[in-house]
Amino acid sequence: MTATSTAPAATDQAMAEFDRTTSRWGRATMIAGLLVSLAGPLYLVFAGGLDIAPAQLWIAFAAVAATFGIIWIVEPLTYYPILGPAAMYQAFMIGNISNKLLPAALIAQTNIGAKPGTRRGQLASVVAICGAAAVHLASLAVFVGLLGSWLISVIPPAAMNVTRLYVLPAVLGAVLVQAIVSMKQPRTTVIALAVAAAVVFLVLPAVPGLAMVSTAIAVLGTVLLAWFFRSRQPASEARPAQPVHLE
């Protein structure tokens, strides 16, 4: 936060007040969102009469953590310089940061002639994210909550069945291509594809017991090999880190 040298003390005081309010309430609302989002699944697991052992939950969580643990930490780190502290609490609660919130913030800043990184720019992005959140919630409520529930009731069971069975490959094919294109790292891509293919087509058929941890093995193997074989150009020529585009 660098103030312009001519900024009067009143500006600093007002912005300090803004920082205090948004950090305090940003934290409080994010913790509330976190708890509410966990309440649903916890209710199903413990009060849904489904007889699920806690160990099964821990194993499932561990498998997810082994795959996405790195991203959980790296993503907030890469977005902080772009978003600033106040918008962090909004962005990581609403999601779809790269494809929705960042463009919204950028367009708002352009439209009122505020530069990114300035205090005016910071306030503009917070307001723009509020506007984007309003549209996001409204469209989810109408198109998914109402229209989607109706759609589910009229879709023929055969089509429902096909959707259920094949939605995973239907999502992953596109997501893999998207990840490869947006990361722009040919070397890492080749290593990742080779490691994943080796794990799925060689290791798993030989040792089926590893099915549970196969993704974790692929992630760890890719990270280690990509690091070992990284291009060692001088820092000035190296490509700047691309923000991770999962959220």
Binding site: I71, L172, T188, A192, V195, A196, T215, A238
Partner: peptide, 18 residues
């Protein structure tokens, strides 16, 4: 920061997809 996230994401989605 440049290599590790890209490797983790592409590795994860490639394995899940395959």
């Amino acid at each position: 920061m440049a290599v590790v996230p890209a490797a983790a994401l592409i590795g994860a989605f490639a394995c899940l997809g395959f």
